[in-house]
Design a protein around this nucleic acid. Structure first.
Length: 344
DNA sequence: CGTCCACGGGAATTGATGGACT
DNA sequence: AGTCCATCAATTCCCGTGGACG
């Protein structure tokens, strides 16, 4: 049944992409000056997860590179690299083919980029709202020819910290809002993946439509569900996906997406998460006390509050409820009914 | 009121790094 | 090659503010 598993991977970039023509046009417009050798306009893509922001950004850069040979570009996932230094490091490595020494200082990185970048270049800042501080946006702006495509869930997140001095100096000419996909668009996305990745008749349009309906407008969720369904059917030795597997596949996919998020957590965030697996509805002070015991090199409460708790919240792993003036922290969907072996 | 808790601004400390000078 | 100094990012420390509650 499975012909090409790659089309179900998270980082698969379809060609062409489906159902985002308007958004593609906006981003390619923003990048157009590069075709004449100028700096592109900065642009900012925002919307909920799984609506094709990253895909559009990458596809737009791919289009550009079809027009203009070898435009340097860098992709930075700011969830992983959220410090000024980390971002610049990734930018340098992506943009330049020159060798980069192991761990250069910030100023060294800037010099390196400035002296090795000739002509325009593009940086994709995925999950840009995770960037700590705003200096790095200055830094990028000061580099001749460089422009960026920022990606975040909500528009305010990126601009919350930007004071007026910065917003006026760094122009963001294009702001592109992504809304959730309709069920029919998701069905179309799934249908293409199925055509490319599966044998003929492996799955019916009805089954795809059903997966689409259950995925709440989130294409990543939908594609993951399809992949899980393929696995399940394969395990049963079937050559197609029967409708009865869909519900279980949805659950499996949700679990898988969550595990993937958890696996990206650092030790502090992991420790917090595990404390909450043990015990729900803790107030901040209690949570911190448990965390402090669980981690052999704990950070201060102050820093936890600023750095790690917001991250867990942002990625929808924990939820906070107000209970008469005190906050209580719980895992999201904490009906932890004895399942999940949690292999970490 | 006094207490408990959460929030977040801002100064201080730490630790790594890269010269500059000897 | 070695010492000293400046810089910078990450983290900690200190503390004032404000809401809720008894």
């Amino acid at each position: 049944m499975l012909r090409d598993g790659e089309v179900f991977e998270d980082d698969h970039l379809p060609d062409p992409i489906v159902g985002r023509n308007r958004h593609m046009n906006e981003v390619t417009d923003a990048l157009a000056p590069i075709e004449d050798g100028f700096r592109a306009e900065n642009c900012f893509l925002f919307g909920p997860s799984g609506v094709g922001k990253t895909t559009v950004a990458k596809a737009a850069v791919r289009e550009l590179r079809r027009e203009v040979l070898d435009v340097p570009y860098a992709y930075v996932n700011c969830w992983r690299d959220y410090t000024r230094n980390g971002v610049l490091d990734q930018v340098a490595r992506g943009l330049l083919n020159a060798a980069i020494p192991p761990s250069p200082s910030t100023s060294r990185l800037i010099d390196l980029i400035k002296s090795n970048l000739h002509g325009p270049g593009v940086v994709i800042l995925d999950e840009a709202d995770q960037i700590r501080g705003t200096e790095v946006l200055y830094d990028l702006h000061e580099i001749r020819g460089l422009s960026w495509i920022g990606i975040a869930n909500r528009e305010v997140d990126l601009f919350a910290d930007l004071d007026d001095r910065i917003t006026s100096r760094i122009s963001i000419a294009y702001r592109v809002r992504f809304d959730t996909y309709g069920d029919d668009t998701i069905t179309e996305i799934l249908s293409r993946r199925a055509r490319e990745g599966l044998g003929p008749n492996a799955v019916t349009e009805d089954v795809l439509a059903r997966i689409a309906r259950l995925s709440e407008g989130d294409a990543r969720q939908a594609v993951t569900t399809l992949r899980v369904a393929v696995q399940m059917a394969g395990r049963e030795g079937l050559s197609g996906i029967p409708a009865r597997l869909v519900d279980d596949a949805v659950d499996g996919a949700k679990h898988e997406v969550r595990q993937k998020t958890i696996s990206k957590l650092n030790t502090h965030q992991r420790a917090l998460y595990e404390v909450l697996v043990e015990e729900d509805k803790l107030i901040q002070k209690e949570l911190y006390a448990r965390y402090e015991e669980a981690h052999d090199d704990p950070v201060t409460l102050r820093y936890l509050r600023e750095s790690h708790l917001p991250k867990l919240e942002h990625y929808n792993l924990i939820e906070v409820e107000w209970d008469k003036g005190t906050k209580r922290y719980s895992l999201v969907g904490s009906d932890h009914s004895g399942s999940s072996p949690e292999e970490h």
